[in-house]
């Protein structure tokens, strides 16, 4: 195994982990407010399409990213209204969001570009190194500088989230809503308000995670390009024990496993390729088994909050 293999594996891991970080943070913010959201995949899909379409029309990936986040918020407001105001079943509405948003994204693309049209491609967001005019094959330069603004934002958000949830009064209040909403309400915390804010943050981050795929990663949009990342993000939050640092490690681990299976296929091993493709999933099962359920998630997660109930 040479150094090129290792360095390129690590670079690929970072690339593949970044959209997962956005999506897993979206799930984390949602769950921390007591909303288990299995519709992240759908939110990412509509964010991905919006990012692509806006970038294609305006020529600005940044605008695409912004509107992708906005679209994520808009669609997630359906989930928020149904689960917070109407106290509907969160899992059911999460699944509805998945079906609805994926189909809506596909429909919008088809209407705009037409069926059977030639492949539409967009320019991707510039990396810091290209903006600075730096060209180098050095691993550290590539790792630290050859990244788009969104990569730095993803890692910055992880840091912010860790500090916010653990070191600020507002963050502790936020977590209290996810743990014991009724107790939080007796302390004067606006439980419904926090849940709506959580839904806005969740929608924005999920939309950005999807838009990342089409404004920073791939120049094309294809139906299903989120490829299960929304569900992997859900696993990453459990895997990361509902903490920002844990979620980051989980996403990097998933990204690493995905990058590893690609490179192991190329290594010329006689092992069937399906075995390598199983690696990320086997690793998930193995780690979740090892970690166990010592620390459960927010105690109020998944339960509707009815203000009038005692």
């Amino acid at each position: 195994m040479d150094m090129t293999f290792v360095t390129n594996l690590l670079l690929a891991s970072v690339h593949m982990a970044t959209p997962l970080i956005f999506l897993a943070l979206a799930e984390l913010y949602s769950q921390r407010a007591g909303l288990v959201h299995i519709g992240i995949e759908g939110l990412a899909a509509i964010g991905s399409l919006t990012g692509f379409l806006v970038s294609y029309i305006s020529g600005s990936p940044m605008t695409g990213m912004f509107l992708g986040a906005l679209m994520g918020i808009l669609v997630n407001m359906i989930y928020a209204y149904a689960t917070i105001t109407l106290c509907a079943e969160q899992t059911v509405y999460g699944m509805i969001i998945n079906i609805f948003a994926l189909a809506l994204a596909s429909f919008i693309y088809r209407v705009y570009f037409g069926a059977g049209a030639s492949l539409a491609q967009v320019n991707l967001m510039s990396t810091l190194s290209s903006a600075l005019g730096i060209t180098s094959d050095n691993f550290f330069v590539e790792l630290l500088l050859d990244q788009t603004l969104m990569v730095y934002l993803a890692y910055g958000l992880v840091l912010f989230t860790a500090v916010y949830f653990n070191k600020t009064k507002s963050g502790l209040n936020y977590k209290a809503v996810g743990e014991y909403p009724k107790a939080a309400a007796t302390l004067g915390i606006n439980v419904i308000g926090v849940k709506y804010v959580a839904s806005i943050i969740c929608g924005a981050l999920a939309g950005m995670g999807g838009a990342y795929l089409t404004t920073c990663y791939s120049t094309t949009y294809v139906d299903g390009n989120v490829a299960g990342r929304g569900f992997i993000a859900l696993a990453a939050v459990i895997f990361g024990r509902w903490s920002a640092g844990g979620v980051l490690l989980a996403c990097l681990f998933f990204g690493f496993c995905d990058a590893l299976q690609i490179r192991l296929q190329i290594s010329g091993s006689s092992m069937p390729y399906q075995f390598f493709q199983m690696i990320p999933y086997i690793a998930t099962v193995a780690v979740l088994t090892l970690i166990g359920a010592k620390k459960a998630g927010p105690k109020g997660a998944g339960k509707p909050y009815r203000k009038e109930e005692r």
């Binding site: 090129t4 293999f5 390129n8 690929a12 690339h15 593949m16 795929l213 990663y217 791939s218 094309t220 294809v222 139906d223 299903g224 390009n225 490829a227 990058a259 690609i262 490179r263 296929q265 190329i266 010329g268 390729y273 399906q274 493709q277």
Partner: peptide
Amino acid sequence: VLDPVYSGDFNASDKGIEFAKALMDQ
């Protein structure tokens, strides 16, 4: 001719990116 590699999915354009990078490394 390097051994064939498989993405497992016709829509995974991201896998295409990573496969091509890895194959160019080879």
